[in-house]
Design a protein around this nucleic acid. Sequence first.
RNA 1: GUGGGAGUAGCUCAGUUGGCAGAGCACAGGAUUGUGGCUCCUGUGGUCGCGGGUUCAAAUCCCGUCUUCCACCCCA
Length: 410
Amino acid sequence: MLKTIAGMKDILPSEISQWHYVEKICMEVFKNFNYKEIRTPILEMTALFKRGVGETTDIVEKEMYTFEDRDKTSLSLRPEGTAPVVRAYIQNKLFNDQPVTKLYYMGEMYRHERPQKGRYRAFHQIGAEYFGATSPLADAEIISLISEILNRLDIKSYVFYINTIGCQECRPKYKEALKNYFSNHFDNLCEHCQKRLDTNPLRVLDCKNSKCKEIAESSPIIIDYVCDTCKTHHEELIKLVDFIKIPYKIDYRIVRGLDYYVRTTFEVKEEGGILGAQNTILGGGRYNGLVSQLDGPETEAIGFAIGVERLLYLLENISNSEYIDYVVIPLGKEQIDMAFKIATSLRIKGFSVDIDPRSGSLKSQMRWANKLGAKSVILIGENELKNSSYIEKNMETSEQKVCSINDVLN
RNA sequence: GUGGGAGUAGCUCAGUUGGCAGAGCACAGGAUUGUGGCUCCUGUGGUCGCGGGUUCAAAUCCCGUCUUCCACCCCA
């Protein structure tokens, strides 16, 4: 039997109402914050991600679905949403329309990783990008927007972490300080962190190893090393977030894995054990260099992405009350034509209507109607057809009334 | 990419020292004439993930492979 590719799965009719629910609420909140939807192809040139996400990131180095087009161009399924949106922003010169541009997207992303709970090779992200704003107000607005989405979805078991990771100016100094500090504890670091100390000392901060964690506890703190611009930006952001009373924690270990981030980074995590090890349900940050790096004008931006599959784990079981307005039941073969006509008429009028194609016994059709959650059934037998009438039965109250066929057909 | 657990009916799972493939739920039909849900009866449904091997005999033991789950790496 042919199956889905490993780490990819179908979203079944029984699950789809949850997806619609999340998408609907997000779209409403985006509307409230004046974001416009953008849809980009799932396939892009590999070069976009190499330049956008970073040549040395894990995503680009070992997780992309990459293959050659017929003309030998290297293409990749998008592993994330930001680079394509930035590409679209530049290509369509959206920066000419408005001084600031606020976009959101919802779609499937692809990464060739080992599947795990909350981590799939095809997964969905809902995200937004805010272009053209240097002000910490933009950062605060993004955080407010995320908070509102989580509130409206009635998700409670999460922690909002905010950090700043400085800029190209000040981060190297911090990295150097970290390197010095961790070098003094080199023998007590795990194998990975010993290597990371050279490649990316920031990563040692969010290592899961208990010894590394302990050492990281008293490591130098980023905020002591950032330049004045970054520090002011961070402080003003915090002031704004406090002012609108959004709960958060400052966590200097939120370092993020993608190359393009500067200053503000943030993550929302579920820490009640529902998600296991993959407990980050959304993440994002400011990326000031990305647009110019992809040949656009110098533009500051900030964005985030929600992992929809992870978010769905946290959703309280929303009432999945499937129903249908009518099931039309002919009691015998002679009444099928008229049943079909009545069903059609009701459908045209806007009701949801079904009719059993199997023409089984009355009992079996009633059972079927009950299973579909029919609010009412319409029964047509020999006697009714003779009188141009039908019986409408309310499935909740069991009340029945005789109606005229002519009325329903008009 | 690395390490570990699991795979038997649509779903959740039993299956003893290797000896005829099972249950509950779901689905279908029925319980005196044309009325659902509750109850009762009956029935359909399996290449025991797939491929090799050992054996008179394999769901059961061995090897490989795929999928899935858990963790690492990393990320949403």
